[in-house]
Write a protein that binds this DNA or RNA. Structure first.
Lengths: 191, 191
DNA sequence: TTTATTTCTTGCCTTTTGTCAAGTAGATAT
DNA sequence: ATATCTACTTGACAAAAGGCAAGAAATAAA
């Protein structure tokens, strides 16, 4: 089904705005699907997708100085997915955004976002709330990296987002948690 | 001197807006000073300061589950300082914001920020740019925690923000880098 | 089905970082 | 000036995590 029920509810859960406003915002989005392993964004492209992920699992990753693939973040359903730096600053992305499983959702372009931003005050609050939400998530991740051991970080991921461990290969999870494959494999055994 | 030259230039460096707009925005801010070791925000308060730090050094910190003080971030001059979560979500802060050295700058309240946000389209772009900037900084920090050793993180801090190492006690820096005092002391010796 | 490829596990050994505790050096207070 | 703190350093040992390489297991391809 291609109605925007899920997106509408997501918007309403993020900011207190009228149902009518939320409806108009949701209707500006376009339905898209991404096949398993396909990309929403590739390195060196300028991101033009502000994407509401309705169902599926995605990740962002990039290559570090040693040429290894590092998973920066996972995205689970009912969230906004986009590469903030490239999208807002209109610069070439250093990161990839990839579908781990088949993904469905709704997107708008940078131009559409700005039109909404300038014409719909309600959308400004939404946009800001999303940025704040992502910032908080990033900060919490930092906190976890500093104050928790790899084992604790793994357990936390297991209890908060089990889907990730179900669908993502170990090496994605390992680089995300900041450990090697071997170490994660050993941690997992001890549980 | 209490003119807003520095703030004005900061605004203009962040977004491409007219000098007139930037001037009006800068004039909405109020000059304040914070004494060494004083707080801009304490735990359990609701942050009401969106603060442009003109000169001085600040930090945010909080207490972890073990009751230890963890420095989350340092702020150097010519930057916006505020506790995003508490300020935007109007909730009790878990963190403190403290002046390490004597600090000067200009602030506005949440209400003043929103008035600007709704009346001055140029300020919307500024506000968004600041959020994006902070998000990117947070992401880079995450990346460093995952891909760099404690020694490399220390060297990086030394080369990018030497003021911090000059004024902040070792224990602040250690918790910020995610190592113990002893470890940082040893790293430092080896250089 | 058989082969090839990728993913995951595991053993051995090294490096990094942590813990605890003692000690030094400075700063602050009385 | 003496005592009291706090910041920082250092030694001895323990724990956490990494590097490398060999194998097992699972997946994909032929």
């Amino acid at each position: 089904m291609n109605n925007r029920e899920s997106l509408l509810n997501f918007i309403l859960s993020v900011v207190k705005i009228s149902k009518d406003d939320a409806h108009q915002i949701a209707n500006t989005f376009h339905s898209i699907e991404i096949k398993e392993k396909d990309y929403l964004l590739r390195e060196k492209e300028v991101s033009d997708d502000y994407f509401y992920l309705e169902s599926g699992l995605m990740r962002t990753f990039l290559y570090n100085l040693e040429g290894e693939e590092i998973t920066i973040d996972f995205f689970t359903e009912d969230n906004i997915v986009f590469e903030i730096t490239s999208f807002f600053n209109r610069i070439h992305s250093e990161a990839y955004i990839q579908a781990i499983t088949k993904c469905k959702g709704f997107r708008i372009s940078y131009e559409e976002l700005n039109t909404l931003f300038h014409n719909k005050p309600a959308f400004r609050d939404f946009g800001r709330a999303i940025l704040v939400k992502k910032f908080i998530a990033s900060q919490n991740r930092n906190y976890g990296m500093i104050n928790r051991t790899a084992k604790e970080r793994y357990q936390n991921l297991l209890s908060t987002k089990p889907q990730i461990l179900q669908y993502a290969p170990l090496k994605y999870v390992a680089s995300y948690l900041g450990v090697t494959d071997s170490t994660l494999s050993r941690l997992r055994k001890k549980m």
